[in-house]
Amino acid sequence: MQSTSRNFSDIPVIDISPLYGNDAAAQGRVAEALGKAAREVGFLYVTGSGIDERLFEDLLAATKRFFALPFDKKMQVYIGRSRNHRGYVPEGEEVFYGATKDKKEAFDMSIDLPPDDPDYVAGNPMLGPNQWPDLPGFAEAANAYYGAVFDLGRTLMHGFAMALGEKPDYFDHCITKPPSQLRLIHYPFDSSAEDRMGIGAHTDYECFTLLRSTAAGLELMNGAGEWIDAPPVPGAYVVNIGDMLEIWTNGQFVATSHRVRKVKEERYSFPLFFTVDYDTVVAPMERFVDGDAPARPSVKSGEHLYAQTLQSFTYQKERIARGEITLPGQAAPLSSFGQEALKRPNV
C-alpha cells in the first residue's frame, strides 16, 4: 500500500559514512534510515559525506562575485540565450504554480559537455555546454563543487536502492550522462519582505535534491498542511525526495512540498537536483503496485524535467507562444506532486 503523509515536526539527521565502507550491516542500517525518512518525511539531513568544506567556501565566494556584477554583465549569460537551459536567471524570470514572481536571481548549470556532444548536436534541450561569465575562477569553483556533490548523489542513490530492497548499483545503468542541475541562487536583502503562505510552494522534478544554504528560510509542508523549518545544519546537506523517486516507488517515497519563506536576510542557496539520464523511463516498481495502490503513470525523466521547466520560466513560455517549441505530449501539470498539490481542488 502507498505511504501516507505524516504529521512530522522534525527532520531526521543521518550519517551516511558507512555507505563509503565495507561493513554490510552498517550500510543496511543507513539504508533503513534513508528509507524511513523518504517514506515518512521526504526530507532529511545527511552528514558524513567526506566532501572538503573548502569546495563550498570557494563556490560561495565565486557566487558572491558573480551576483555583485552589474546587471548588464550578468545578462551577457542570460539563460534565454542558451538552447539547453544554462545561465543567468534574473529576478522574476521563474514562477511556480499559482505564485507571484519570487524575489531572487540565479545561475543555472549542469554537466559541462563539449559543443560537439552528440546529444547536444541532436538538439537535446537539457544537455550540452554551460554558459560561463567572464569571471576568473568562477567556472572552476562551480565545476569542482558540482563534481563532488554529484558523486555524493551517486552514493545516496546506492543507499536508496538498498532501502528499496535492491542491490546498491540498481540505478547505475541510468546515471551515465544525466542533466542534473546545480543552481546558484541569491535572495537579496529585502527590508519590505512579508511572509505569505504558499508562495513558491513546489516539489522538485528530479530524483532528489542536495542542498547547502547560508541562512534559514526553507520550509516543508507536513501532512497536516503545516510549514516546518529546515534551517542549515553546519556541514550537512539537506536532501529532499523528488518526483522521480515518488513515481518509481508508486508513492512510497514522498516528494514533499516546500518553499522559501520570505525573509529580510540576504541568503545564498545551492541546490543540486540529482536525476537520471534524459531517456530513462520511470515507472512504478511492481512490488509497490496492488489493488489499493494502482500504478501511477510512467514518465520519461528528461521530458518531465523539460516540461516543468517550460511551464515555469518566462523565456520558455515566450518560446512556446511564438511557436518555436512545444510541450512534450505527456507533460504533467506544473507542480502536480506533493502535499500542497493534494490540497488544491481538482488535483
Results as ranks from 00 to 15, higher is better:
123 G>H: 03
249 T>I: 11
310 L>K: 02
10 D>Q: 15
243 D>A: 06
338 G>M: 11
169 D>V: 14
220 L>H: 01
20 Y>T: 04
154 R>N: 12
193 A>M: 13
309 T>G: 06
158 H>P: 01
137 G>C: 08
290 D>Y: 03
184 L>S: 06
128 G>S: 11
289 V>Y: 13
38 A>R: 06
121 V>H: 02
173 H>M: 12
18 P>E: 02
23 D>C: 08
220 L>C: 12
344 R>A: 02
92 G>D: 00
234 P>D: 15
215 A>D: 15
211 L>K: 07
261 R>L: 10
333 P>R: 13
239 V>C: 14
95 V>S: 02
187 Y>S: 01
128 G>V: 09
299 V>E: 03
40 E>S: 14
8 F>C: 09
151 D>P: 01
236 A>T: 14
311 Q>M: 01
211 L>V: 08
160 F>R: 09
192 S>T: 15
153 G>L: 09
185 I>E: 07
122 A>I: 04
314 T>Y: 00
335 S>Y: 00
264 K>E: 15
347 V>L: 01
230 A>M: 10
131 Q>A: 08
3 S>P: 00
15 D>C: 13
228 I>N: 14
151 D>L: 11
290 D>P: 13
75 M>I: 00
156 L>C: 12
231 P>A: 05
83 R>M: 08
295 A>G: 11
212 R>V: 01
14 I>D: 12
112 D>H: 07
74 K>E: 08
210 L>V: 12
278 Y>C: 08
216 A>W: 00
80 G>N: 09
304 H>M: 02
215 A>G: 11
224 A>H: 10
109 M>Y: 11
113 L>G: 07
146 Y>D: 01
167 K>A: 09
287 R>F: 11
51 I>F: 10
157 M>S: 15
